[in-house]
């Protein structure tokens, strides 16, 4: 009923869509192309080359920051996925419990909260607790932010599921926890995977919260990139950014393939 042939779409709509997508993608494409520029000057094209990738892999400080970021992202994304999934289950399955409004408020507020506030408030907490700032403080801060995104993704998937499957499993003698693990968990697995990946990339991306909560000597990759960018454009930064864009693109393609493979079993694909 809704399906219209493309020919019936007005030219205006097609032009808008094309321009919108071009606007979203062109800057990134330009960035990637310039990362292969052989010239020392960022703006002069000197032919194709991999020298800036080479100089990144020889930059010890940058590599250390990248390693720190990857560790933080992996640990915080895993913690956030566990906590966020539990929260999503509580919100969709627990009909009503005391403090539910506060609970959902706490889970949605960080989604829009300016990062400077989240970062500052967490730092003040860590200082008051006397915690040593570094890997764990950044990891905890990122977990707090990203678990909210996991909750939203898993919750929308859980909300769309047919509960009668779970009820059938319980009629057949499963206890609720077992029914959940055996029936529901495989169905929401794509959403959980998508949640983990989003948490991972958000953590990898974050500059502001990490700047507040990290300690001396443990800079993350965005903190290093930011301090370099403030000094001006450098070809090496182009290469690092392209590497990040490339790995995220690979992750997304892998995820959409995975969700396509599993969507045969579920009702519809994960929203993200």
């Amino acid at each position: 009923m809704n399906a219209r042939p493309l020919a019936q779409m007005s030219r205006f709509n097609i032009a808008t869509l094309a321009m919108g997508l071009a606007f979203l993608y062109l800057p990134i494409v330009v960035l990637v192309i310039y990362s292969f520029n052989a010239s020392q000057l960022v703006t002069v094209w000197g032919g194709w080359s991999l020298r800036w990738y080479q100089s990144f892999f020889n930059d010890q400080a940058m590599l250390a920051a990248a390693a720190m970021s990857l560790r933080v992202a992996a640990v915080s994304a895993t913690l956030a996925t566990v906590l966020g999934t539990l929260a999503a289950v509580a919100l969709t399955r627990g009909e009503r419990f005391k403090g539910r409004t506060l609970f959902s408020g706490m889970l949605y507020a960080p989604l829009v909260m300016p990062e400077v506030i989240t970062g500052l408030s967490l730092l003040l907490l860590f200082v008051a607790l006397g915690a040593e700032r570094g890997f764990w403080t950044v990891t905890i801060a990122h977990t707090t932010l990203t678990m909210c995104f996991v909750t939203v993704i898993v919750q929308s998937r859980l909300g769309g599921l047919d509960r009668s499957l779970e009820e059938a499993a319980m009629d057949l003698g499963c206890n609720p926890v077992r029914a959940f693990v055996a029936v529901t968990l495989p169905l929401i697995a794509p959403a959980i995977a998508a949640g983990w990946m989003l948490a991972f990339t958000l953590s990898l991306d974050d500059l502001v919260i990490a700047s507040f909560t990290t300690g001396p000597g443990s800079a993350t990759l965005p903190i290093r990139i930011y301090s370099e960018v403030r000094l001006g454009v450098k070809p090496e930064i182009n290469a690092i950014c392209s590497l990040i864009v490339g790995s995220i693109a690979i992750l997304i393609v892998a995820a959409s393939l995975a969700s396509k493979l599993s969507s045969g079993r579920g009702q519809n694909a994960a929203p993200m």
Partner: peptide, 29 residues
């Protein structure tokens, strides 16, 4: 009704986490 209790238990960990790392910090601010 049987669903509800494990769901409530599921809320405990994220509830505590967000209270400690999201709500309490505002008191410090």
């Amino acid at each position: 009704r049987i669903f509800t209790r494990p769901a409530r238990i599921a809320a405990v960990a994220p509830y505590l986490w967000m209270s400690l790392f999201f709500l309490v910090p505002f008191v410090f601010v």
